[in-house]
Design a protein around this nucleic acid. Structure first.
Lengths: 129, 129
DNA sequence: CTTGACCTTCCATCGTGCTGGAAGGTTCAC
DNA sequence: GTGAACCTTCCAGCACGATGGAAGGTCAAG
């Protein structure tokens, strides 16, 4: 299949596919006689893997690590487990940070809702922030 | 005070202070006879306001909006309230997204922990992701 | 035979908030 | 007088994941 068909089939764009190839996430595509990229069905499988990795919040670099392990003939299972463990810790920290931030912003927002502009000091820009 | 002293006093860097001036967050500093920037105590107040805005997760552009309203002689209270309300909605959405993501990653991580490499299909890179 | 939809490469740009470094001027202590 | 520690401007680049556009080749339908 051609690049536009693959993009259509996987819900992405030709730009992104060329970018992924450049980034080593897709193997260099076989070329038809006219120079057009010619993909087999395994490209769809590969892109689905990339999509799952992105959905899990992995970076393209991390996804590439996993692909490289597989392409080197190893099984990437344990590395995937490591990546997911780190990711989980990171997500938990992000959630905790956001919950702290939410409390702060909610308090400020509540105060700003009952603001008395006259009480503000111009030099301080806004006392409700 | 000179730029290095202001940076020291506010816990930032001279690079950042020049960047803020360029971005319109700090008014162009008065210059001493040798061309050095010369700041008054109000610069500390202004930087403290910027720091509070950053801590609330506002972008520099949003902080600048507030500053511009104040510098135009208006009271920015209601705009601050609007910004904080939007920010709160956004934070709640981010938290919800992350909690959904956490569930996904936790499940994958659990499965990957009891992985059987032999059961993996090489074309699929890793079935645990 | 032309039009339009594809495809190719290459290079630049987005947003966000800085950060680094070069090349040079100023000031102060020793 | 010299060296360090400041300061100045200007231009480049980082991460991240694409996205836009120019200039040109290819192919099938009408």
């Amino acid at each position: 299949m051609r690049i536009g068909e693959l993009a259509e089939a996987t819900g992405t764009t030709t730009k992104t596919l060329r970018f992924y190839e450049e980034a080593g996430l897709l193997p260099p595509a076989h070329r038809a006689s006219n120079g057009y990229r010619d993909y087999g069905p395994d490209a769809v499988t590969r892109l689905d893997f990339i999509r799952r990795g992105r959905a899990a919040g992995l970076t393209l670099a991390q996804i590439r690590e996993v692909i490289d392990i597989r392409d080197a003939g190893q099984t990437p299972c344990s590395h995937v487990h490591d990546l997911l463990t780190i990711r989980l810790t990171d997500i938990d920290r992000q959630i905790a940070d956001l919950q702290g931030l939410r409390a702060t912003v909610a308090r400020l927002c509540h105060e700003a809702g009952r603001a008395e502009p006259a009480a503000c000091d111009a030099e301080d820009v806004c006392r409700y922030l």
